[in-house]
């Protein structure tokens, strides 16, 4: 089965915005650090999709792919570091509640 791919900017833009809103809401509606990380990941998915769509629409797919590959590598390193920080936070406070980060004044 071959999939016919549309050339409309607004189709891609709509789905980019939907993923973006989903990720943002997921981050803001929770107090659990791991869930916020999942929200951040959804945001990264939306951006990855947008970059590929931009490359596709402008005919510079090779460049867009090169960018996305680098973005994915950066993404995984950030996730690993954040995971380490979440674990450290959990060991220290015995909780994953982001409310603990608000205790700092200011």
């Amino acid at each position: 089965m071959t999939i016919e791919i549309p050339q409309s900017f607004w189709l891609y833009f709509t789905f980019f915005v939907l993923l973006l809103v989903d990720g943002l809401w997921c981050m803001l509606a929770t107090r659990n650090l791991v869930r916020i990380l999942i929200g951040l990941e959804i945001l990264m998915k939306s951006v990855t999709f947008f970059l590929i769509a931009a490359g596709y629409l402008s005919g510079r797919m090779a460049l867009a792919q090169a960018l996305v590959i680098t973005v994915i590598v950066i993404e995984v390193v950030v996730v690993v570091v954040v995971a380490g920080i979440i674990l450290g936070f959990y060991r220290k406070h015995d909780s994953l509640d982001v409310g603990n980060t608000r205790r700092m004044k200011g």
Binding site: I3, I5, I52, A53, M61, V68, I72, V73, E75
Partner: peptide
């Protein structure tokens, strides 16, 4: 899968294995 069908094969493989 979306990336693959748009022709971004290498990036699609990366996304699948890494992400």
């Amino acid at each position: 899968v979306v990336m693959f069908s748009m022709g971004a094969t290498l990036a699609a493989v990366m996304e699948l294995s890494v992400c």
